[in-house]
């Protein structure tokens, strides 16, 4: 297990870098996690992170890539809900990386 340092706080991460406790998540935590991945979060990133958190609230699971794309297309339209847009935002692994930054569990059905 590793730790994410955020000011005074030490936030536990699992071996893949996901939050151990989902309640530790905040926008600041997301930014710190993104920085570890060499990403700076833009409004377009935030839009997808919000979408993922909605997905989790509704279905109680993290989506694999295809369902994430379908859900994004439903909620945000086809310009946002396509693999090109999502891959460009999240280094080619949108389901895994966006779930990590959104403070959600690793998608179980995503190899």
């Amino acid at each position: 297990m590793s730790m994410l340092s955020l000011g005074e706080r030490q936030i536990p991460l699992d071996k893949d870098g996901y939050l151990v406790d989902r309640n530790d998540w905040s926008p600041e935590v997301a930014e710190a996690l993104a920085a570890q991945e060499g990403l700076t979060l833009t409004p377009e990133h935030w839009e997808i992170l919000g979408l993922l958190r909605d997905f989790y609230a509704e279905f109680q699971l993290s989506p694999a890539t295809r369902p994430l794309i379908r859900y994004a297309a439903q909620k945000l339209g086809p310009e946002k809900g396509n693999s090109l847009h999502l891959n460009a935002l999240f280094k080619g692994t949108p389901a895994k990386l966006a779930a990590k930054l959104a403070g959600l569990p690793k998608p179980t059905n995503c190899l």
């Binding site: 279905f59 109680q60 699971l61 369902p67 379908r70």
Partner: peptide
């Protein structure tokens, strides 16, 4: 228990 019912609702999104 985890919410299996909520999970089931995701089936159409998984195709």
């Amino acid at each position: 228990q985890k919410d299996l019912g909520a999970n089931l609702q995701a089936l159409p999104l998984f195709g």
